[in-house]
Design a binder for these strands. Sequence first.
DNA 1: ATTGGCACTCGTGACAATCGAGTGCCAGCG
DNA 2: CGCTGGCACTCGATTGTCACGAGTGCCAAT
Lengths: 335, 335
Amino acid sequence: MSDDRREAILRAIVEGYVSTSEPVGSKALAQHHDLGVSPATIRNDMAALEEEGLIAQPHTSAGRIPTDKGYRYFVDMLATASLQDSHKRAISTFLSDAVDLNDVVERSVRLLSQLTRQVAVVQYPSLRESPVRRVELVRITSDRALAVVVSADARVEQAAIDVPETVTEEEFERLARELNEIASGLSPQPLESALDAWAERHATHPWLRDVASSVVGAARGGTIERVVFAGTGNLTRAGSGLKADAVTSILDALEEQVVLLRLLHEMASEGGVSVRIGRETGQDALAGTSIVAAGYGNLTSPALLGALGPMRMDYPGTMAAVRAVARYLSKVVET
Amino acid sequence: MSDDRREAILRAIVEGYVSTSEPVGSKALAQHHDLGVSPATIRNDMAALEEEGLIAQPHTSAGRIPTDKGYRYFVDMLATASLQDSHKRAISTFLSDAVDLNDVVERSVRLLSQLTRQVAVVQYPSLRESPVRRVELVRITSDRALAVVVSADARVEQAAIDVPETVTEEEFERLARELNEIASGLSPQPLESALDAWAERHATHPWLRDVASSVVGAARGGTIERVVFAGTGNLTRAGSGLKADAVTSILDALEEQVVLLRLLHEMASEGGVSVRIGRETGQDALAGTSIVAAGYGNLTSPALLGALGPMRMDYPGTMAAVRAVARYLSKVVET
DNA sequence: ATTGGCACTCGTGACAATCGAGTGCCAGCG
DNA sequence: CGCTGGCACTCGATTGTCACGAGTGCCAAT
C-alpha cells in the first residue's frame, strides 16, 4: 500500500479541480498524470481517500472533489511554490513610489488582489512603537485645538481637543512649544509617563490632561483598527464558483470589519503564512471560502494582510503572492 | 384620449415591476389598480406607450417592463415621496454622535446603504477655500520629509517630499520656520503666489519648488478626491435582478473611483437630487444600474453622496433617503 | 497489490407535448 | 371617437421521456 501514490492522487485531484472547476474522475486522472497505474487502481485509492474524508463526490456518478479536510491536507504537504518573475517585478514597481502610509496600504491591497485574483485585505499597521517625531498643537477656534502627531515612521495622526476660552494665545503657544520639546523622540511608553508628569506640573491647566491622553493615543497608532480591501469584483467573476447569496454574505462580512478583524487576530498568532479553509474560519458567513494570510511589519505585533476567495483556490500561487507582498511591505514599513 | 390614464398606467407598471420584479400584464393591472377600464383598453394604451419607447416587452408573450426612458419619465413626473418616520429617527440618531470627519462620512455611507438597500457612495468634502493655519515641515529620513498642513477648518493634510541629503539640519529648520510664517493665514490662491515667490528667492534650493507645490496642493484639500462606499452586498442580494457579470463590472467600477468621480462631478452641476438611469450614466460598466445623487455641504462646490443600484429600483424611496441624508449631512459639516 | 471487465447509477442534454399568460386585432356598442 | 368583449396567435416555461456517457463499485483473475 503506497501512501505516496495516494498523496499524488489527492494532489492531482486538487489541482485538477482547481483548474477546471469540475469533478475529476479516475480515467482522466490515469491519462493525464502518468502514475503508471490503471484507473481501477486509482479508484481503489480514491475509495480509501474518501473513507478518510479527504475527498467526496457531489453525486453518485461524478468524479471526486476535495473536501475541506482534503484541501487542508494538500496545503500542509505542499512544497512551497515560488513566485513568478513577472509578479516579483510587479511588486517592486508597484510599491516603490508610494508617498505615505495610506498610499502604501492602498497600493498593496490593489496589488495583492491583482496577483491573486482574489479579494485582498490589508490591515493597517497597528499600534506600533515608533517614536514621536514632532507634536503640534494648533488652535482652531477660541475653544478648540488640534493635536497633530508626526511619528518617526511618517504617520500623521490628529486629535481634536477642547480648550478653555480663558487660555491666552501666548500661554497656549508656550505650552505647545513645551509639549513638542518634551515629546520629541519618545516612544509611546515613556511618552505616556512624561506627559502625565507634564500635565501634573501644570495643575492650573486641567485641560492638559486631555491633551496628554490624546497625544499618547495618537502616538499609539490612531484610534481604530481598520482593514481595507480590494478586488471584490473577483468574487463574482466567472469561474469563482460562488453562489450569489454566498457572495452577499462575504461582502457583508467584509464591511462588518469586526468579524474579519477577529479572524485575522486569530491567524496572527500562527506566524508565517497561515491558511483557513472553509469551516475552519469559524464564520458561517465564510463557509465555502478560504483565507490565506501573513503578518507583516513589526514582528512582535504584526499587522496582517491576506487574500480571501473561494475554497477552490490556487493555494500555492496565493500563498506565494501573500508571502511575497508581506515581505516587501515589511521592508517598506520598517524603514 | 386620456393622457392622465396613460401616466397612471406607466406609473402602475413601474411600481409593479419594481416590487415584483416580473413583467406586468394588462389583466393584473386592471384588477389591482382600479382604473375603471377593461384590460383591452389598457392594452391599447400600453401599445401607445410602447410606441413612445417608454415600455417594452422582454418577449412576445410577456407583460411589459419599463425602459430607461420609461423610468426617466416616471422619475420626472414623480410627486416627491416623503421619508418614513422611522428613517428620520434613524438618521438623527445615527449621525448625532460622530467624532470626526472620517467618522461622519463612514457612518453616513453605512446609514444610506441601510436606508436605501442599495450601494451607497459618499464623496469626501472637497477642496474648500479655508485659509492655512499652520504648515510644518518634518524631516523623516536624511532624504525625505513630510509637509503637514493644518487648515483653519481643522483639516490636516500631508504630503511627502524628497530632500537632498546635502541639506543640513539647521538649514532645514530655518526654511521650515520661514515656510510656516509665510503660509500662515493665507488662502490657497495668495498662498500659491507667495510660495512661488519664496521658492524663487531660494534659487539654491530647487527642491523647495516641490515643497511649494505640495503645500499648495494640500491646502487645496488634499491630494486626491475620494469616495467611500458601503452596502455592496446589496448588489447580490436576492431580487436585485443583476447578473453576475454585471455585478462584477459594478464592483470594479467602484474600486476604480475615477469613473465614479467623473460621473458624480457631472451630476453635481444639476443641483437638487439628480438621477441617472441605465445608459444615462454614460458608462458601459453601469448599464442596467441607476444612480441617485445629491450634493451636500458647501453650496458653491458641494461634495456628492448617493445610492447606486439596479435600474429596477424604488426611486421615490431612494430619492427621499438621499435627499434627507444630504440635508442632515450638510448641517453637520457646515458647523 | 494490481488489473480488466461488467453491471449499475445518475446527471445531462435533446426533443416533444402541453400549458397559460399575454398580446394584437377586429367588430360592435355607447 | 373611445371603450369593450372576443378570439386567434405567439412564445416562454414546465414537464416527461429517452438515450447517452461519465464514473463508480465490485469481483474474479493475475
